[in-house]
Amino acid sequence: MIAFTCPERHQQPAADTVRRGASMGGHTRNGEGRLIRNRYLLRELLGQGGMGAVWLAQDQLLRRDVAVKEVIFSCGPTEEQRKIRFDRSLREARSSARLRHPAIIEVYDAFERDGRLWIVMRYFPGRSLAAILLDLGSLAPERVAHIGVVVLDALTAAHSLGVVHRDVKPANILIAETGEIVLTDFGVAFVDGETTLTLHGEVLGTCLYMAPEQLCGELAAPSADLWALGATLYEAVQGHPPCVGPDASLPASAPLTPIINGLMRKDPEQRLTAHLAGQMLAEIARRPEDPREGAV
């Protein structure tokens, strides 16, 4: 049984922020056609967030499409806050660049220009799991289990190098039309051995998917990523986050119930291990999808 105090629900994202056709919310497109660092030609604004934008660009040297993340730091009211946000974004690039896994977006380059940080990475033309759930409501358990296997494998690779993602959620899982799945956005990741980059009173992550110990301000460990994965799998089969709706519990007979409940145990020491969770998810993922299957 999932037992924790739920924060107030946040609104679901209205659209993808890293794919073609995403709503720009009034963001200027004046950057289209610019050549950055005499190499990267900005072609299309793919999305935006509170700290910048993501562009589809062409690497003029290697003649391939890339995604370029433009990180803007002018929103911070103090120089200290701007520096922390810059350092955190640079750490995102560094932590992602040290990871080599097919389900983690590869970082190619990073540099500072005009007071902004530019991160060049693999272009992945997919939709976020969050957007897919907005369209479909929920997914079959077998498909959710497959997503879980891929994301868990990516997290295991990150954890083996001392990197904790800290923000696993449907919006940070991208799925291509080919079925390929990747985990994105290591922007709030914690790297073992490095200084924590936070502002006073700041909690990093997304509350709906944060482990209880994270909400209490404790340092995130790999077990916190496992909790967040459990919350993500829950939303994928139920159609809403675990603390939203009249009943947060899963039907006892649902195939993913033992896994989700095991990943979301309040005590981090009592949660399913990544190895055991991976085995259980893989077993369900191998089953053929039942078209008559409901949300769970």
Rank of each mutant, 00 (worst) to 15 (best):
Q279D: 09
A110C: 12
T206A: 11
Y209V: 07
A254T: 14
L263W: 12
S253H: 13
S223N: 07
N38L: 00
G245P: 12
D109A: 01
L256Q: 07
L263Y: 13
P212L: 02
A277M: 13
Y123K: 08
E79L: 05
T198E: 15
V54K: 09
I2F: 09
E92C: 04
R98W: 02
F86G: 06
K266Q: 14
P102H: 03
L233N: 05
R85E: 07
T195K: 10
F186L: 14
M280L: 15
G201C: 09
C75H: 15
G230I: 13
Q270F: 05
E92K: 11
H159D: 10
A130T: 03
L152W: 08
R19I: 02
V203N: 04
P102F: 02
I132C: 04
T184K: 06
L56R: 09
A211K: 07
P7R: 13
R113M: 05
G162I: 09
D153W: 02
L174M: 14
L139S: 06
A57E: 01
R100K: 12
Y209M: 08
D114C: 01
A3Y: 10
E177A: 11
S128C: 05
E289W: 00
V150L: 08
E202Q: 15
G201R: 09
V107Q: 03
L133Y: 04
L250W: 06
C243Y: 01
R37N: 06
R39C: 00
N172H: 09
P291Q: 05
W227E: 04
M24K: 07
L136A: 06
S253Y: 04
T206K: 13
V244W: 02
L272G: 13
A97Q: 15
G47H: 09
E202A: 13
A130P: 02
D114Y: 01
A145E: 05
E79A: 10
E283W: 10
E283L: 10
C216K: 11
A231T: 02
R100C: 06
V163Q: 11
L263K: 14
D267E: 14
F4C: 10
H240F: 05
G49L: 14
P77A: 10
E293D: 00
V296R: 12
Q60S: 10
V149S: 10
L226Y: 10
V149F: 03
L62S: 08
T195I: 11
V296D: 04
D192F: 09
P291V: 02
R94K: 15
L129Y: 01
P125Q: 01
L42A: 06
